[in-house]
């Protein structure tokens, strides 16, 4: 084990700050932060793909799969244990990624984006057709316990928050280490020039495949977390607009640091919540305008504001 570097220290400090601060946050803010952290995991997975030169417009596939996997554990097996739900979600999304990833691994650019979109829309179509799963209305999920210990309503909120925060920190640190490892460093190499990577003796296909699976695992986990936090799931999670929103937040955050996705996600949730409240008739316009401003003036994402000193933090 090497000593934690700056990014890792920030991630861990952030985790402690969140865990301590969370106890004092008002309920609505706690919910918002929990949700932002969970969605930040998806954005983090997109960061990995973007580092590899790939953008997915179908990440809703795993997001939705994770959520439904968790939901079915509750619905069919009547298990309300958060730990079981999350593990099953992780397993299911990994399993699907193992297959879908094989197909996707030879695609790049817009075709990667569109093929993943097609897969997520097929899942959407299937779920809309399943009356047993509530069709477009979806169904509710209740967490009653965590790793065997039963929960009260108040402790449930904090637990989900703490879970999201811990996953976020662990995922950030893990991703940071991965990106710094031999395999991880191949990602930008693939993005920059696949031929060279092949000449150097590494398999581009394997790098893409592996990264797709890691991304899917993170996204499935995030989907399950979101499901537990919101308490309700529906096929909308697989719809292309959901995926598009994640890509937007990923661009907003930039790929400079593994911490950026969580910040971007939080800012986006705040922006939308306030646009909703103060401009209920034109919130789309507000979000669209914000998006254009970021793309124009912060082309490398919001992290540019922090990373001005020029050093790439990754």
């Amino acid at each position: 084990m090497r000593a934690p570097d700056r990014t890792e220290k920030i991630a861990l400090l952030g985790l402690f700050a969140l865990l301590a601060g969370g106890a004092f946050l008002p309920q609505w803010a706690l919910f918002l932060v929990t949700l932002a952290l969970a969605k930040g995991l998806v954005v983090l997975s997109l960061l990995l793909l973007m580092r590899t030169g790939l953008v997915s417009f179908g990440h809703g596939l795993y997001y939705c799969l994770g959520a439904y996997a968790a939901g079915m554990v509750g619905q069919l097996l009547h298990v309300g244990d958060a730990a079981v739900m999350l593990l099953v979600a992780l397993a299911v999304s990994c399993a699907v990624a193992l297959i879908v990833g094989l197909l996707l691994a030879s695609y790049r650019g817009i075709f990667f984006a569109m093929l993943s979109l097609a897969f997520s829309m097929i899942l959407y179509g299937l779920l809309v057709k399943s009356a047993a799963l509530g069709s477009t209305d979806g169904f509710n999920i209740t967490v009653t316990a965590a790793a065997g210990a039963s929960l009260s309503s108040a402790s449930r909120r904090y637990l989900l928050f703490a879970l999201s925060a811990s996953f976020a920190a662990m995922a950030a640190v893990g991703m940071h280490r991965f990106l710094g490892s031999h395999l991880g460093r191949l990602a930008p190499a693939v993005r920059d020039n696949e031929l060279r990577v092949e000449y150097l003796g590494a398999s581009v296909r394997r790098v893409v495949y592996l990264n797709t699976i890691i991304a899917a695992a993170l996204t499935g986990l995030a989907g399950a977390l979101t499901a537990l936090v919101v308490g309700h799931i529906d096929p909308e999670m697989a719809y292309w607009t959901t995926s598009g929103e994640f890509v937007f937040v990923a661009i907003l955050s930039g790929t400079a640091s593994v911490l950026a996705p969580f910040l971007g996600s939080l800012l986006f949730e705040l922006l939308r919540s306030f646009a909703y409240q103060y401009s209920p008739n034109t919130w789309q316009m507000v979000v669209g305008a914000a998006m254009l401003l970021v793309i124009m003036f912060l082309p490398t994402g919001l992290w540019a504001v922090f990373g001005r000193r020029g050093k790439r933090v990754a």
Partner: peptide
Amino acid sequence: YAVFLILED
């Protein structure tokens, strides 16, 4: 996409 959102409103 941003243009789309703005035009929708």
